[in-house]
Write a protein that binds this DNA or RNA. Structure first.
Lengths: 195, 195
DNA sequence: TTGCAAATTTGACCGCGGTCACTAAATAAT
DNA sequence: ATTATTTAGTGACCGCGGTCAAATTTGCAA
């Protein structure tokens, strides 16, 4: 028999997430240390790991929520009217991930949280993104703006592949940033989606 | 003034690489520990880090050499005669990377070795791969087997993007392996290259 | 041969993520 | 009310990658 978590536990979890978000906002996600989180939250180290599988599990909750926010924003704008318009819709999310390679790695590797609800935020966001883009592609196909000799899901996944490719290349070079990530992405998506 | 490395240093480096390769062969690349390497090589821990930037730097040398070997093999076979033939040429490398996510991460993140020759094996292999594939694509374009409304380099990079996408997805699911990586890759490459 | 400077190696030490046997608190059973 | 049982939290401890001032070895020149 599983028992509902006590309020104390929910408060502890919320406190940990709040503190972590705070540290990330001020120090950057790459400078977040578990010891800092637990110290500022006023709990022991072991407590954190009873709430989250590991450090990445914690980060995934926060990053996943942010990604979901971007997806909400995309969703609210409705289907794009062209490939260029689609790229514009994607841009905020692209820039968010491009801002820090820790985020990129997290999204690519995700190790999962420990929660009973199995709320693997990253995975959920991933599928939602593909679904959303696939819908857009379907609309654009109907309008003749995207080639329709392949299923929307395949094309949507392809867009994600190019996004990851562009980001990975960007994080490989030592010179931080020369051109916006978007201009590297555009030619690929154009060649992939154009009729 | 830079001086050529002494014999002793070359031997130490070779010994470290040999021991590391040995451990990887018997224990797997994910179970390699720095302490084991230096102990079995008969040197102190600090020595390893004076030869390689970090643990990944060491691994990159070995993995990079392996990748180069696959590229040599590809090269020796000459240009493929069709998209399917191209996929067959790629398959060994794909399977090598698919075998262990440590290898995949390494190739995607590479942090670099410390050597003066700046022999960033991974980076070199990366460019060589794109160049090789671009040549193939150009040949296939000339034969009408691949669409020729885009530069070969773009198409080659796209193939790599799809390869990474398929691998990333594969490493995300908990169920180890259902179908060969190749069958996941084929539809993307077909849709990407077909005229 | 001797002395010096550069090159190479050393290993004690550190930071940080993660574990686990134990204590404390909350809830259920008597 | 008292005891038993489950849930939450604790912090000393560990593993392992990585650092650095000091020690050692090597090459070269006087």
């Amino acid at each position: 028999m599983v028992r509902a978590p006590q309020q104390r536990r929910l408060e502890t979890r919320a406190k940990l997430l709040a503190v972590a978000a705070d540290i990330i906002a001020s120090e950057g996600i790459g400078n977040l240390r578990v010891e800092d989180v637990v110290q500022r939250a006023g709990v022991a180290k072991g407590t954190l790991f009873s709430h989250f599988k590991d450090k990445d599990g914690l980060l995934a909750i926060l990053v996943g929520a942010q990604v979901m926010q971007y997806l909400d924003d995309m969703d609210a704008l409705g289907a794009p009217s062209s490939i260029d318009s689609l790229l514009n819709r994607i841009e905020p999310l692209l820039n968010y991930i491009a801002a820090d390679r820790v985020i990129f790695d997290l999204l690519l590797r995700y190790s999962g949280s420990i929660s009973d609800h199995s709320d693997e935020v990253i995975t959920a966001g991933f599928y939602r993104q593909i679904e959303l883009w696939a819908n857009w592609v379907a609309v654009l196909q109907a309008q003749g703006h995207v080639r329709n000799n392949h299923p929307p899901a395949l094309l949507a996944e392809g867009v994600q592949a190019f996004m990851n490719q562009v980001l990975a290349l960007r994080f490989c070079q030592k010179t931080p940033a020369d051109v916006p990530a978007m201009s590297a992405l555009r030619p690929f998506v154009m060649a992939w989606l154009a009729p």
